[in-house]
């Protein structure tokens, strides 16, 4: 079986600090992989390496068989990899609709009418059709993050990356964003999600990846991961976060 995302021997260092120390992971089409681990374990760095927002020193990443490297192919590959950021990163001078329509308009070459129609349909899907013409600054954090998800979806990517999508949100807005992500997961979208939301991981993940110190410690289906973790370090991590 050929994986949709194939990560081989990934090493990444910031100066002396080794953020990733040899990561191998392959993600199949339609799979939902949730990456958990303590802060500084390298999980955000790992997803940012998939679309090469971070450069790395050794190893390789392939998306749909194509190697992700700097150069002329990069923008094309990135268009197939949607990304949702912790801090939303919406374009503040553009309305929600324009944020979502920009990629299809410029990258996919759709007409403005078609791009706008698709953007509106996606905003409807994340429950924000009535806010389509507002600027990001006029929306709550949860609403902004849902616009960001619609923006990523608008490119019809092969895989969606989420880099701690709820970490910057007020607690009362976490639920609305997770609900949108959960609905997406059920539609068969391939997703790689870095999060601290263990309940969400348990409900939605096909596999949970536990990282520590730049290494993958354990990969398991959520029942096993939360019910019967194999590794001592996984047990220590789960104990620490579940006991508070």
């Amino acid at each position: 079986m050929s994986a949709l995302v194939e990560i081989n021997g990934l090493h990444k260092a910031y100066g002396q600090f080794e953020a990733l120390r040899g990561i191998d992971l392959s993600i199949g089409a339609g799979e939902v992989v949730v990456v958990v681990g303590p802060s500084g374990s390298g999980k955000s760095t790992l997803v940012r390496c998939i679309n090469l927002l971070e450069d790395y020193q050794r190893g390789e990443v392939r998306v749909a068989g194509e190697k992700v490297v700097r150069g002329r192919t990069l923008a094309r590959v990135r268009a197939e990899v949607g990304m949702v950021f912790q801090s939303f990163n919406l374009f503040p001078h553009l309305s929600a609709l324009r944020n979502v329509a920009l990629g299809p308009l410029r990258v996919r070459g759709l007409s403005r009418t078609v791009a706008d129609a698709r953007a509106l349909a996606l905003l409807e899907k994340v429950g924000l059709a009535e806010h389509a013409h507002k600027l990001p600054g006029q929306l709550s954090g949860g609403q902004q993050q849902r616009v960001a998800i619609a923006r990523a979806l608008a490119m019809e990517p092969r895989v969606l990356l989420f880099d701690e999508p709820t970490s910057a949100l007020d607690p009362e807005m976490v639920g609305e964003v997770l609900a949108v992500m959960q609905a997406l997961a059920h539609t068969g979208v391939t997703m790689v999600i870095v999060t601290h939301e263990m309940g969400f991981a348990r409900r939605v993940a096909d596999r949970v990846v536990f990282m520590e110190d730049g290494l993958i410690v354990e990969v398991a289906p959520p029942e096993n991961f939360f019910g019967a973790p194999r590794e001592a370090r996984t047990r220590a991590f789960l104990q620490a976060i579940l006991s508070h």
Partner: peptide, 26 residues
Amino acid sequence: PRGQFEAADAIGLGFFDTLRDVVLPQ
């Protein structure tokens, strides 16, 4: 902010589109 460049990169916008639609207006 750097995040604006990253968001533009992530949707596959080219250099000139990023300048015209994202960076220069701001």
